[in-house]
């Protein structure tokens, strides 16, 4: 083959790859108008409440090494005051944990062994949730509802959104919306009628083996009661001990070997 032509076409191909790879990706977002209308109504309804509280039951799918899917559930209660307060309880018969964010730090209490840990956080929920995820590998369920612009946050990477009519969730008729992204697909069910409350959320993790799902069913909403500041302040239960909150070591091919001082660490 003509070396000169081969050379030229390879350079063009290479430049094209470079151009598409280097160019800031602008995904084509295609959300059906009805889906957009329903989602916006839900976000606006949520955004106009300075405080909100909810109770939910969340289900996480765990895929075993043999490919078996197991679902494990938790009761979740969440109290939020935008822009910088959050209190969450995640509970099951075997494990009960509390999370407090007061604009300065995140405290996690593992109630059963009586252990808690703390880390400094920025003074805004959005940034604090991001730092908790990036630095500590902590993901709080339903955090999407606590951020400052839930709609903009949720649709940031959406490629396509569709409206699937009405379905009952926990006995309440809800608008069923489904969104496609590259990394996850997610579906949301929003109450029909004068109170467009979010009743169900499903996130499908397409990039993981067997595409495990996270499901949240929100049983109770409170958008009216004022939440006391003390709800967001952590108070160590009697006998609880402070332990270290370690940065996330899950990525980058780290082995389970951790680099900890083997002599007595001081209680901070």
């Amino acid at each position: 083959m003509n070396t000169k032509r081969l050379k030229r076409s390879l350079i063009i191909a290479g430049s094209t790859v470079l151009a598409t790879w280097a160019a800031p990706g602008q995904p084509q977002t295609n959300i059906a108008p009805e889906a957009d209308r329903v989602l916006s109504a839900a976000c606006q309804y949520l955004a106009q409440a300075p405080y909100f509280g909810l109770n939910a039951e969340v289900w996480r799918e765990h895929v075993t090494a043999s490919g078996q899917k197991l679902q494990f559930s938790r009761r979740v209660s969440m109290e939020v005051k935008r822009p910088n307060r959050l209190h969450m309880e995640i509970a099951s018969p075997h494990s009960q944990r509390g999370f407090w964010y007061d604009g300065k730090s995140l405290t996690i209490l593992d109630r059963e062994p009586g252990l808690f840990s703390m880390a400094a956080m920025p003074n805004a929920l959005d940034a604090a949730l991001d730092k908790a995820h990036d630095q500590f590998g902590i993901d709080l369920p339903l955090a999407d509802l606590a951020v400052s612009d839930p709609c903009k946050n949720a649709t940031a990477k959406v490629l396509k959104g569709a409206y699937y009519g009405l379905s009952p969730v926990l006995g309440i008729n809800c608008h069923h919306l489904a969104f496609i992204q590259e990394n996850v697909d997610w579906q949301i069910w929003i109450e029909d009628g004068p109170h467009p409350l979010i009743r169900k959320l499903v996130i499908t993790h397409k990039n993981e083996q067997a595409m495990p799902e996270f499901t949240a069913l929100i049983t109770d909403w409170d958008l009216t009661d004022r939440i006391a500041e003390s709800d967001f302040a952590f108070e160590a239960p009697r006998g609880a001990s402070k332990i270290e909150m370690l940065p996330d070591q899950a990525t980058g091919g780290e082995s389970s070997q951790m680099h900890l001082p083997l002599t007595n660490p001081k209680n901070k």
Partner: peptide, 10 residues
């Protein structure tokens, strides 16, 4: 990223 779309996107 578990439990929120935001965490997955991050």
């Amino acid at each position: 990223g578990w439990g929120s779309v935001r965490a997955s996107n991050r």
